[in-house]
């Protein structure tokens, strides 16, 4: 999957209320409108932010997506997903 498409999805799910609502209702249906392979869908649904960053996705988007949409919105969990033991985390949202 192209990074551009992934960034579009993550941006929408970070800032757009309608997109967030539709994703929460039925994530697979929401993602079906984008040109995604099954492994791409799995990456998004599993909040694999490490893999996303390895694909070149801007870390501000992976963080925004995590904070807005993940079941566990804690930054400590985000850091673990990244493979980091960081004690402190930037949060661009209150």
């Amino acid at each position: 999957m192209k990074r551009d498409v992934l960034e579009r999805i993550l941006w929408s799910l970070s800032v757009d209320r309608f997109s967030k609502s539709k994703f929460k209702e039925d994530p697979e249906k929401y993602l079906s409108r984008f040109p995604l392979a099954p492994e791409d869908v799995e990456m998004i649904l599993s909040f694999d932010v490490k893999k996303m960053q390895e694909m070149g996705v801007n870390p501000m988007l992976t963080m925004g997506y995590w904070i807005e949409m993940s079941p566990d919105r804690r930054m400590s969990s985000y850091n673990k997903k990244l493979g980091s033991e960081a004690q402190y985390s930037a949060s661009i949202k209150g």
Binding site: Q53, N58, P59, M60, L61, T62, M63, G64, N79, L82, G83, S84, A86, Q87, Y88, S89, A90, I92
Partner: peptide
């Protein structure tokens, strides 16, 4: 500052 990366806090 490192934002949203694994180095955050450095």
């Amino acid at each position: 500052h490192w934002v949203g990366t694994k180095e955050s806090g450095r």
